[in-house]
């Protein structure tokens, strides 16, 4: 059971949360063509490595937030509020690799 870092409440057990899928996927515009719509609705990065994802602290503050997690180690790197800019995952990965090498 993961320890999920809610940006408002701090780290809490995963039981309190609902995972809400990849972050920063723009909602399809009302006139999106079928391909763009499918991309928005169904196509996901599914990265083996760092991903930005959405969580909701359902049994807590009830709020949605974004987090960066490594999908191999399952370790969270950061969490941030909706509306905050998407982190540059490639750069973040480099930074983490450099830190790990120290």
């Amino acid at each position: 059971m993961l320890l999920v870092p809610c940006p408002w409440c701090g780290p809490r057990p995963e039981l309190e949360f609902v995972a809400a899928g990849e972050a920063h996927v723009a909602r399809p515009s009302p006139d999106a063509d079928p391909t763009a719509l499918a991309e928005a609705l169904y196509f996901r990065a599914n990265t083996k490595g760092l991903i930005a994802e959405r969580w909701r602290h359902l049994h807590g503050c009830g709020r949605f937030f974004n987090a960066v997690r490594h999908t191999v180690t399952d370790k969270f790197v950061m969490s941030y509020r909706p509306g905050d800019p998407a982190p540059d995952l490639a750069r973040l990965a480099e930074t983490l690799a450099a830190e790990a090498a120290l």
């Binding site: 909701r56 709020r63 949605f64 909706p82």
Partner: peptide, 13 residues
Amino acid sequence: HALMEDFLQTEWP
């Protein structure tokens, strides 16, 4: 309700 919250919090804040 969850979907309402999702839209309110993240899509149409």
